[in-house]
Write a protein that binds this DNA or RNA. Structure first.
Lengths: 142, 142
DNA sequence: CACACTATTGCAACAAGTTGCAAATGCACC
DNA sequence: GGTGCATTTGCAACTTGTTGCAATAGTGTG
């Protein structure tokens, strides 16, 4: 799997080690790229496969993947903390409903358009930019 | 104070009661409109003034103010959860540094421009829209 | 200003998240 | 394949956040 190898080499380049816990976490996230994963889902998977990963390790590794811009944490109303794969050169931005917590990904065209709108924000680097919009979805619209 | 009365009438309209804890919280937030307040700051203030507000009440009231679009919760890297006043007809969007957690508010012109860029996102209501951009600040830029 | 009605609070038990430290282990080098 | 060493883990104690429920107290009405 190509992406998998990409990630491995990122870890290596930073002297980060590929432990069973990390391997499992990365695999699970890669297998659910389009989902916003809850901690419960992640923990359950790691329990049943790597069997016995302590929760502090799970938290620490999620933190690590965030720092590496591999995942992004989203705080979804009603649904709590979620983790979303964002490691690709593709764009990503999210529309989140303040009422029900539904999250949907934006598309490339819109991303480009918004990025352009931000061109005058000079003191802010748009490298690995990610954007979150909070409004109301069709169902919850008022 | 004008804004204060605005908020009070919003509460009234929803059958929400003005308890000491709520009054204190609202006052504190109004007095620090341009800060991202930490829970510690809020709690400390409420302890020393209203003396003895249970933490569950603090959490519940913050949740309430979020639902009313009076404050917004921001998750700042390194700094944790913060609460930011957003209740005015003025626009608000934030630039957050993924490394150090520095948050800065955007301005009206940019907001308008970005909002326009979002015009084709039809299934998403931009009422009380708020936007968060994650990138890197000048200091942390790489 | 007392009453009734319902929203809100405090409490206590629990769940989720954090941290320092000693033990374990991945990995580069031989 | 063994060795050394820095990274990572598990553990345990702790802090932070959540929830159900009974007691408390705002608020509108007369």
């Amino acid at each position: 799997m190509k992406k998998h190898r990409d990630l491995i080499s990122i870890l290596k380049a930073k002297n980060l080690r590929l432990t069973p816990a990390r391997r499992g976490l990365i695999q699970y996230i890669l297998d659910h790229k389009d989902k916003q994963l809850s901690l419960l889902e992640i923990t359950r998977f790691l329990e049943t496969t790597v069997d016995g990963v302590n929760r502090s390790s799970v938290y620490r590794n999620l933190e690590l993947l965030k720092k590496l811009d591999i995942i992004q944490e989203l705080n979804l109303p009603k649904k709590g903390k979620r983790f979303q794969y964002i490691f690709d050169k593709e764009v990503h931005h999210f529309y989140i409903c303040k009422t029900c917590g539904k999250a949907s990904r934006g598309n490339k065209v819109l991303f480009g358009r918004i990025e352009k709108a931000l061109k005058d924000v000079h003191e802010f680097s748009k490298a690995n930019l990610s954007m979150v919009f909070y409004g109301y979805c069709e169902r919850c619209k008022r």
